[in-house]
Design a protein around this nucleic acid. Sequence first.
DNA 1: GGTTCGCTGCCACATATTGCAACATCAACG
DNA 2: CGTTGATGTTGCAATATGTGGCAGCGAACC
Lengths: 262, 262
Amino acid sequence: MSPVSHLPARALAPRRHDEILRRLGAQGSVSVAELAGFFDVSRETIRRDLKLLSDQGRLGIVHGGAARFEPSEPAMSLRSQENAGGKAAVGRAAARLVRDGMVVFLDSGTTTLAVAHAISELRDLTICTASLKIALHLCHVPGMRVHMLGGEVDPGEEAAVGIDTLDAMARFRVDIAFLGGGALSPDGEVTDFTRAGAEQRGRMIALAGKAYFVLDASKFGKLTPLRIPNFERAAGVIVDANPELALAEALSQKGPELIVAA
Amino acid sequence: MSPVSHLPARALAPRRHDEILRRLGAQGSVSVAELAGFFDVSRETIRRDLKLLSDQGRLGIVHGGAARFEPSEPAMSLRSQENAGGKAAVGRAAARLVRDGMVVFLDSGTTTLAVAHAISELRDLTICTASLKIALHLCHVPGMRVHMLGGEVDPGEEAAVGIDTLDAMARFRVDIAFLGGGALSPDGEVTDFTRAGAEQRGRMIALAGKAYFVLDASKFGKLTPLRIPNFERAAGVIVDANPELALAEALSQKGPELIVAA
DNA sequence: GGTTCGCTGCCACATATTGCAACATCAACG
DNA sequence: CGTTGATGTTGCAATATGTGGCAGCGAACC
């Protein structure tokens, strides 16, 4: 038992770690000097703490301290300009699969935003989405009922993510879903950047009558870390250009149909 | 040597970057001299920071500082331009009530959108809103966590409404809430257009530590059909001009404080 | 009691960031 | 059209920070 005496009660390592993470959450960054002064330990000790937390992937080390991770991908406004023509073609191909009166789920992402524009021509759709921009666009189209899924907003995606989103999704009966993805891997599978994203897409496949991935050619052959559950049960993958033969075969063997937009 | 001295603790690079981006988001542009003075570093350092952020595509460098490149904000809806000065004043008055670290609820509406812009200056806020535009704006401000409330999207409000929204709202512990309203009736009560809106606002009054209505002068003395439950428990009503004496007295008699923005 | 192990602080050396100074550019104005 | 003050750029030196080795210290264990 540690004596509860008058000793200066030096902070134990886990206590320091907790406080460091708390400050990170509150201020976004911490400095070695600050922390060393606060805990009254040497800078080396703080650095060792930061190294440890960094190895656990809970913060990023910068010169002079540490900072919270910011996924900081290129702003969405920039991404949506890339290969705009291809995305539009994918959007039109996707729209041809939709019939008046359907319940449509639209995932977040720039290609699904193109789908949202393409289906503006249709009537009497019920739209279900976690993307702020898609909701904002389609809510002004007459004859559309738009349901926004709630959750914590991911600035990179400009969309709700997380447990609340999964929860809200489960309440819908969806006729057709259009999903984004991080990459179309060489073995014919769509993969994702984040655990939360992969989970969300996987559940939507299970939930929707038919689920299609929409991807543009820039995603071919890339690799991202997370497999999407239920991928083989997706109805198809809509792309804007012919992928390599090997990739196409690998995909069709998994199950989903390959649709190449004109 | 004991580091008990309160040396100015030079800001870490990431902290400077956050602050620069925050100012960009709030004011649209920043100057090198301003920033150098604020952080107490040399102009070269600031320029190196700006170069770095520019390379990441997060701002554009101009002579004398940096500006945010806005791929043309597609002209905000007409309503928000009416009495823009007054709404901005209300927004600033509202922002003065907010402290770093708070959980803030922002209702839908054009005046609350002005509040959203005004609180961009603050840091480490958790925002909870049903408004698509507010979520879209604030999710890009560093240091803000934004929670979007789900629900069916009302095209007029560009916000989620309905049972799902009420449900999601109830899960939050809110420090301060800013609510819109349809009118400030002659008997000193804020009233609303729709049953769903009135119910949502009434519940938020009950839920939040402090609830303020934000209104501009165009709402004075008008009449809309629905009373807002719990109105007398609201902390205050923030407006941009002095209402008639009778109206002010009627309001103060109900309970909420009248705050007239400069 | 002795030993091992983990944590911590100190030291010396490597590296990164910053500020200064000199010079090149830019923009406003008569 | 040229001057003038402010701003941008570059090389370099000073300072702060990061890294690895080593020893002291206390706790746990044999």
